[in-house]
Simulated assay, not measured.
Amino acid sequence: MTGERRDPVRAAGCVLWRPALSGHGIDIALVHRPKYDDWSHPKGKRKRSESAEACALREVMEETGQSCELGPRLPTVRYTVDGRPKEVEYWVGRALGGAFVPSREVDRLLWLPPSAARRRLTQPRDRDLLDAAVTTSLR
């Protein structure tokens, strides 16, 4: 059955936030991936035998330079990439500190208020995820 694999690609990530530097409200972290020229939440594929939670923490660190604390679970996002199903498990993640270093995978990091982050996100599914995080978890 070579080429017929239909097991979903499993991934995990976070809607990453921090208190706004202005002292009012929160900021959301968005990453820019030059390969796709898109803005999204930090996420990535799970390694073999890695838990979704460990993957989310690792991907946030790799893509943003931030350590984080996982908060409430968010809806799992399902879509297809190159004909193969993909499932991404998400959490709300509170940034605890760190420093961003650009890489080939992620070349920019922006911290924006939720309304501006929503406008900047490329995919509607990521806007839906941000809405879910803001309405259920970040009040």
Rank of each mutant, 00 (worst) to 15 (best):
Gly3His: 04
Gly3Ile: 01
Glu4Leu: 13
Arg5Met: 09
Arg5Cys: 08
Arg6Tyr: 08
Arg6Glu: 06
Pro8Asp: 10
Arg10Ile: 05
Ala11Asp: 08
Ala11Val: 02
Ala11Gly: 14
Ala12Ser: 15
Ala12Val: 06
Gly13Pro: 12
Leu16Phe: 06
Trp17Glu: 13
Pro19Glu: 04
Ala20Glu: 00
Ala20Val: 00
Ala20Ile: 00
Ala20Trp: 00
Ala20Arg: 00
Ser22Asp: 03
Gly23Glu: 07
Gly25Glu: 02
Ile26His: 00
Ile28Pro: 01
Ile28Gln: 09
Ala29Arg: 04
Leu30Gly: 06
Leu30Glu: 01
Val31Ser: 11
Pro34Ile: 12
Lys35Glu: 15
Tyr36Gly: 01
Asp37Val: 10
Asp38Gly: 07
Asp38Leu: 07
Ser40Ala: 14
His41Pro: 07
Pro42Thr: 03
Gly44Trp: 02
Lys45Glu: 11
Arg46Ala: 14
Lys47Thr: 04
Arg48Ala: 13
Ser49Val: 12
Ser49Ile: 07
Ser49His: 12
Glu50Ala: 13
Glu50Gln: 15
Glu53Trp: 06
Ala56Pro: 10
Ala56Ser: 04
Arg58Ile: 12
Arg58Met: 12
Glu59His: 07
Met61Gln: 10
Met61Gly: 02
Glu62Lys: 08
Glu62Trp: 08
Glu63Phe: 14
Gly65His: 09
Gln66Gly: 11
Cys68Arg: 11
Gly71Tyr: 10
Pro72Met: 04
Arg73Ile: 09
Leu74Cys: 14
Thr76His: 01
Thr76Leu: 06
Val77Ser: 12
Val77Phe: 05
Val77His: 07
Arg78Met: 15
Tyr79Ser: 13
Asp82Val: 08
Asp82Phe: 06
Gly83Met: 05
Pro85Asn: 03
Pro85Leu: 04
Glu87Asn: 04
Val88Thr: 14
Glu89Phe: 07
Tyr90Cys: 11
Trp91Ala: 11
Val92Leu: 14
Arg94Gln: 08
Arg94His: 05
Ala95Ile: 10
Ala95His: 07
Leu96Glu: 15
Gly97Val: 05
Pro102Glu: 08
Ser103Ala: 14
Arg104Pro: 00
Glu105Tyr: 10
Glu105Pro: 00
Leu110His: 03
Leu110Asn: 00
Trp111Thr: 02
Leu112Gln: 05
Leu112Asn: 09
Pro113Ser: 08
Pro113Tyr: 00
Pro114Met: 02
Pro114Trp: 05
Ser115His: 15
Ala116His: 06
Ala116Tyr: 02
Ala116Leu: 13
Ala117Val: 03
Ala117Thr: 05
Arg120Tyr: 04
Leu121Met: 05
Thr122Ser: 11
Thr122Tyr: 04
Gln123Ala: 12
Pro124Tyr: 03
Asp126Leu: 02
Asp128His: 09
Asp128Asn: 11
Asp128Thr: 05
Asp128Arg: 11
Leu129Glu: 06
Ala132Pro: 03
Ala132Ser: 15
Ala133Thr: 09
Val134Ile: 13
Val134Phe: 11
Val134Arg: 14
Thr136Tyr: 04
